[in-house]
Simulated assay, not measured.
Amino acid sequence: MRVYGIVGWKNTGKTGLVERLVAEITGRGFTVSTLKHAHHAFDIDQPGRDSHRHRVAGAQEVFLGSGKRWALMHELRGADEPRMETLLARLSPVDLVLIEGYKREGHAKIETHRAEAGQGLIASEDTTIRAVASNVPLEMDCPVFDLDDTAGIADFVLSEVGL
């Protein structure tokens, strides 16, 4: 599978860009999945629901299925966080997987940047970042896109992965 990353510091527009890219690229006829890294505990389940009760009881995995979607929850129960490649291997084949986060991994990425976030650029020290999407003009040794230029960024990503 082809993968491309979106990275950046908190509140720089990563999720919004991923959301717009998914809509843009699927609108062009390609299939897209996403992988989002979370730095905190998260729960897609709710206390009191049957699936939550199964997990609390000790189930290693809880699989939910309906006529609309399915979800698999896997409890690590003290095991190490799985590597990005391990998670990617669990996805069904698609044309492109957009990865939000995992900034320290070796795949190609675009960095999001907002001046008001007050953070330096990761790209200045990371050669896996191939372009920057920013809300202010920047002088860089890589392409710089306006953060809102979804079509241009999509063109770049699709070209980078050979689609």
Rank of each mutant, 00 (worst) to 15 (best):
K109I: 03
I110T: 04
I110N: 00
T112Y: 00
H113P: 01
H113E: 10
H113C: 07
R114G: 01
A115T: 12
A115C: 10
E116P: 08
E116A: 15
A117N: 09
G118V: 12
G118Q: 12
G118M: 13
Q119F: 09
G120F: 07
G120L: 08
G120V: 08
L121K: 02
L121R: 00
L121P: 07
I122R: 02
I122M: 08
I122G: 01
A123E: 03
A123P: 03
S124R: 15
S124L: 15
E125P: 05
E125S: 14
I129Y: 04
I129H: 00
I129C: 05
I129A: 04
R130I: 10
R130D: 09
A131G: 12
A131E: 11
V132R: 02
S134T: 04
S134Q: 08
S134D: 11
N135V: 13
N135M: 13
N135Y: 10
V136M: 13
V136T: 15
V136C: 12
P137S: 08
E139P: 04
E139T: 12
M140R: 01
M140T: 04
M140W: 00
D141P: 00
D141H: 15
C142A: 14
C142G: 11
C142S: 13
C142D: 07
P143K: 02
P143Y: 02
P143L: 00
V144K: 01
V144E: 03
F145Q: 00
F145M: 02
F145H: 07
F145P: 02
F145L: 05
F145C: 01
D146R: 06
D146A: 04
